[in-house]
Amino acid sequence: MVGVNGGKFPAIRQHLDKNIAGVYKDMDLTFEEYPKEGKVDPEAYKAAIDKLKPGDAVIIFTPDSTHFPIALYAIEHGLHVLITKPATQKLEHHNTLIEAAKKKNVVCWVEHHKRYDPTYSDAKARVATLGEFNFFNAWMAQPKSQLETFKAWAGKDSDISYYLSSHHVDICCWILQDIAVPTRVVASAAQGIATSDPYNCVPGTEDTITLLIDFQSIKSPNHKGTAISTASWTAPLKSGVHTSQHWYYMGEKGDISIDQAHRGYDVTFDETGKAWVNPFYMKYSPSATGHFDGQRGYGYISIEKFVDAARSVNAGEAQPSVFNGQGFPTIENTVLTTAILHAGRISLDEKRPVGIKKEGDKWVLE
């Protein structure tokens, strides 16, 4: 396990012992830490990666701005890589990872777990029957308490669009694969809550960011579509869900509406009121024998599929490129997600529309 501050590992071990070993039977929680206790090293990941051998795998769940250097270092050492979303903050960095993974013939995926949600994957299949794309609208928000959780980097190293809109921007690009491609992004933001008491994030931190995305049909020059993706971390407290999230799709021949936050399953407690829970993502309650029982959750499956892919490549049973055609969130399949998010950031900073186009075999911004 790798971090920056070795002084945090004792508390991490206590947390794992309480919330995993104390809940499930037969869980091995041993790990070697980098850096060691008492040391602070932003590049401790290099020492850890240097200890691994080609064909091993790393999973990167770090602040957004650190994804690219860690992933590139791992790939260049012949390791398979799973990166939490967003893959990178810049399109050129994403393109670099695509080329590096091809050169080293390793699996490089992005942990877009919503692709494995059975509702979302079923919706993707149904979208294929609805003709040309017309409109997509996604909303995703977390309570204001998240500003305390992410205060160390909120508005400094990343924004709420990279953090949350990355989910549904990817879903939009995924379901529109072979149907339409993005051509332009215009972004707008609300401000004032994150930078005020009691949160006091750095000046300029956005509360809510909306991306307006133009799409062009791949098959019909006459068909264009519009997508809206909004993300916020200033939603009300005690709303009953940790993340409010839903989306609507309208095609030429029908529409689809999904509310992922409310799955028809709610629990009410005297102390905290009603809560809508989602065991489809991860089942945290143990099995009848006391063991971990979350293997069917799409949060677990997302990591399992990556490990399966890495193993199959190591065994010579598959090439990394084969997964591009199977709907998995490979680094190549997720490039348009990064293009849209990066374009949104530029649009906010420079107050202008940002174009997306393909030059040769690479996607670029203009």
Rank of each mutant, 00 (worst) to 15 (best):
F61I: 10
F61G: 07
T62D: 14
P63H: 06
S65Y: 14
S65G: 09
S65V: 13
S65C: 13
T66L: 14
T66C: 08
T66K: 13
F68W: 06
P69R: 10
P69N: 11
I70F: 12
I70C: 11
A71K: 03
A71C: 08
A71L: 09
L72Y: 11
Y73C: 06
Y73Q: 05
A74E: 10
I75Y: 13
E76Y: 13
H77E: 12
G78P: 06
L79Q: 03
L79S: 02
V81M: 04
L82C: 03
I83T: 09
T84H: 04
T84G: 04
K85I: 02
P86H: 01
P86Q: 02
P86F: 01
P86K: 01
P86V: 02
P86M: 00
A87G: 10
T88Q: 05
Q89E: 10
Q89G: 11
E92D: 15
H93Q: 11
H94C: 12
H94F: 09
H94E: 08
N95C: 04
N95L: 09
I98P: 00
E99L: 15
E99A: 15
A100I: 08
A101Q: 04
A101V: 10
K102Q: 07
K103C: 14
K103P: 09
K103S: 15
K103V: 15
K104S: 12
K104G: 05
N105H: 12
N105F: 06
V106F: 07
V106T: 07
V107F: 05
V107C: 09
C108I: 05
C108A: 14
W109D: 04
V110W: 03
E111R: 03
H112F: 08
H113W: 10
H113L: 08
R115W: 08
R115V: 11
Y116G: 01
D117F: 03
D117L: 03
D117C: 10
P118K: 04
T119W: 10
T119Q: 15
Y120C: 13
S121P: 03
S121H: 11
D122G: 07
K124A: 05
A125L: 12
A125Y: 07
V127Y: 00
A128E: 15
T129K: 13
T129E: 14
L130M: 14
L130C: 07
L130N: 05
L130W: 04
L130D: 03
L130A: 08
L130F: 10
L130H: 06
G131F: 03
G131K: 03
E132K: 02
E132A: 08
E132R: 02
E132P: 02
E132V: 01
E132D: 08
N134D: 06
F135P: 00
F135S: 04
F135Y: 11
N137A: 12
A138M: 01
W139A: 05
M140N: 02
M140R: 03
M140Q: 10
K144G: 15
K144Y: 14
S145C: 10
Q146K: 13
Q146P: 04
L147Q: 15
L147K: 14
L147I: 15
E148L: 13
